[in-house]
Amino acid sequence: MEKEAPHRDPANVFDPEKAAPFLFAGGHPGWLGLTYLGHGEDWTEIRLPWREELMGDDVRRVIASGPIFSMLDMGGGIAIWTRARRFVPIATLDMRVDYQRPAGERADVIARCECYRTTRSAAFVRGIAHDGDPDDPVATMAAVYMTIGDFNPAGAKND
């Protein structure tokens, strides 16, 4: 069950690869069908597979903007936990997405999000969505998340 999932235990180091099956098991991420692709110190990459139900209109067989927003929001959260190396409850405060071009027909879309800064109560993320070539993005995002609690509780190391 969600509240017993190991990635939510603050004593455990957050590993996005191990947490992904729990994070993407159900709810909105499960409905989207998100999967884990990779991560580094402060970034994560996840995939949104193409399917007909995610189409934005009848003219072009491409993933709509809404699911791409959802994936970037999710990817940003995972990037924050990856950088913090532990799970902290967070809520998105403000998020902006610029859609540069439609995704390719029937193309999966990939989100790469980087958490470039955390303070005691906020985390800052930038990211892109692409359909194969990160140098030719479908969309770019910038977002601020607030922690519900504290990134640096007494006893935790400062970063």
């Binding site: 709810g27 909105h28 699911p67 927003f69 994936m71 409850p89």
Partner: peptide, 22 residues
């Protein structure tokens, strides 16, 4: 419904945004 859930018992921000965009 379950398809909109993020944090247990709450909307996922992406689902909220999807509704507003729609």
């Amino acid at each position: 419904i379950d398809a909109i859930e993020g944090r247990p018992g709450h909307f996922h921000g992406g689902a909220t945004s999807g509704l507003m965009e729609t």
